[in-house]
Design a protein around this nucleic acid. Structure first.
Lengths: 143, 143
DNA sequence: CAGAATCCGTGGGGATACTG
DNA sequence: CAGTATCCCCACGGATTCTG
């Protein structure tokens, strides 16, 4: 029923207001574990974090605590490059950088929700298939 | 409007009866060029080839001519492992192997179509964003 | 705080050649 | 025909350290 807590929630757009979760890794799988993937390994999780509005780099680092700053920057830059995310430097305080979804980025939320719903629905089947297949392989090797 | 001919057709399920296209690479992008991806680099194209029914390894090699046999085998094995594809060896003739979508694999077609529709719809925007971003970066380096 | 720089290991993906 | 078997490369992701 779960892998690191996944899936608990497929409702992109409905849930998660304001405070970001402590660790998104435990709530959602990184996309590399998912047959349906969005961009690079962390793109889906990043987009999800930006769903409710702009977030600062340091804010993103909390739910994405397992992502090193370098990789997080790389992913954000890639999203920016594709016009899915905007990076805004606010001169107010010292070094205040915010990331925000563009309209294009927002439009991704819908197919993303569909894909996540699919995964949530079929997660058990996927796990079962994998296990069965791995077991068969193990037996094969053994005898 | 196109990159290697993409997108020309987003209708998974509606188009492409019987004869497989000569080169799917020119008709669809490998998923690494796509913000929405399915499995590994070639999974989406493979699934698409299996949409209309079982296909033999050699049949798949035609539209996927740019995929080396090793990589094609790897991808197929991964899909099999996740229960999305079934590999069947038919003892009729010598070495007759067919790949076929499972029910689980078939159920992927729907969110896949949604994702592909998104990409087709926003492809121009994506390209534009990339180009604009790359141009800006070039100017930045120059001056 | 928001990264940049550096170093590094792994492996995904490709080319080529070979086989039952 | 349906793959293996090798070899190779570099891009991805991670750890750590440094900086304006």
């Amino acid at each position: 029923m779960r892998v690191g807590g996944y899936p608990m929630d497929t409702g992109y757009g409905e849930t998660m207001r304001e405070p970001l979760p402590a660790d998104l890794f435990d709530e959602l799988c990184p996309s590399s574990l998912n047959p349906i993937r969005f961009g690079d390994k962390w793109a889906a999780l990043i987009i999800r974090c930006l769903e409710d509005g702009p977030r600062r780099f340091s804010e993103l680092r909390v739910p994405l605590s397992r992502v090193t700053p370098k990789v997080l920057t790389q992913s954000l830059r890639a999203l920016e490059r594709d016009g899915l995310v905007i990076r805004a430097v606010r001169p107010e305080a010292a070094r205040h950088v915010e990331y925000e979804l563009t309209a294009l980025g927002r439009s991704l939320l819908e197919p993303m929700a569909a894909a996540c719903a699919w995964t949530a629905q079929h997660w058990d089947q996927l796990l079962e298939a994998r296990e069965a297949h791995d077991d068969a392989a193990r037996l094969d090797r053994a005898g």
